[in-house]
Amino acid sequence: MGEGIVRYKRDVWGEEVILGVSWDLLWVVAVAILVLLAAHAIIMAALANKKMEKPSDAGRRVLRHESIDRLFHWVMAASILVLILTGIAPIIGLRISWLNIHWISGLLLTFVVTFHIIRSLFWQDFKSIILAPRDFGEPFDSAKKPGKYSFEQKGMHWAVTVVVLAVIVTGLLMFLQIDSPFWDRTNSMPEDQLGLVFLLHGLSTLALVALASAHIYFALRPEKIFYTRSMISGWISEDEMTANHDTSRWSPKEAD
């Protein structure tokens, strides 16, 4: 049913319409991300001895993530991982009963993302995540330190935001096309539109796979792992803060 990025099929009257993304791309993405991350790891290892000392995690602790946000993060992370795994299972030929888990996780993701959007708009410091023009200079000037979030973190966040929203919107549209406990399917979406939705869902899935891989990789890197710890326990040390952040632009309260 077609090669390349897009797979095509015949609609009910024999005309060619989009079926979805070509899942061969999954392997392309997997290999590409593996190569990139491996390259990054090698470069970082080569540069390691020139690096300055790792800041201490001892001493005063400041609060980086409130417990509710940490909970959100991990629920979101879990649901995305489950969505990716269950979505990919049938593609790689794993015979598991994946669909119900997939849409339930999808609904969970939709719920927590909605929660996060509302919370971030009204209760969190929304400005701290906004990508400002000055942020783009950050990677090129080691003297420039970020506020709460680094340029890379903001970039990752917004990339994930776009991709997750795309995957949620298309996912919900696809959810409407199957039977669920809440409705019976209607076949009301024209096949060409349905194909487009599948394509966008597939493309955003591929992007999400790439982003999630990169995110996990960076989260596990030794120089960044304190951020991961903060996503678990909430705090970073004052030392870690001053080493990586401009305290004039981010002054967190002390951790409990």
Partner: peptide
Amino acid sequence: GLDCYRAGGNICYADSPEG
């Protein structure tokens, strides 16, 4: 020969209000 789910497609023509 329709490209339905079972044929690797993305739709079922039978499970619908008029199918």
